[in-house]
């Protein structure tokens, strides 16, 4: 099992964020949970990518530049 950390989805915040961007858009029941899942997987990808960048630069910590490069790659992959 990948996840043992106790985590609840910020369901109403997720709905509010989507509402902020697209006020007309309605979410069917439990779609917010899948959005949460998608967000977790997005952060997962971002983390993996940032870690790879840090390794390549022989850095022991994730620095902003590693995160920036990772962000570009991962946001592109996240396009629907």
């Amino acid at each position: 099992m990948a996840m043992m950390m106790k985590r609840t989805a910020p369901r109403s915040t997720l709905r509010k964020i989507i509402k902020k961007h697209k006020p007309q858009l309605r979410l069917a029941a439990n779609v917010d949970l899948l959005i949460h899942l998608n967000f977790l997987l997005f952060l997962h990808r971002l983390a993996e990518e940032a870690r790879t960048n840090a390794f390549e630069n022989r850095s022991k910590i994730i620095k902003p530049e590693h995160a920036i490069v990772a962000a570009k790659v991962v946001l592109k992959k996240s396009r629907g």
Binding site: I17, I18, H21, F39, F42, L43, H44, L46, A47, E48, A50, R51, A54, K60, I61, I62, K63, P64, H66, A67, I68, A71, V74, L75, S78, R79, G80
Partner: peptide, 24 residues
């Protein structure tokens, strides 16, 4: 997920990136 230390400024990038993600 990252399993290694993260600089404070790098977290700021992650947060920004999350906002972009939600817009997209």
């Amino acid at each position: 997920y990252v399993k290694m230390p993260v600089a404070r400024d790098a977290f700021r990038i992650v947060k920004k990136c999350s906002e972009r993600y939600f817009r997209q």
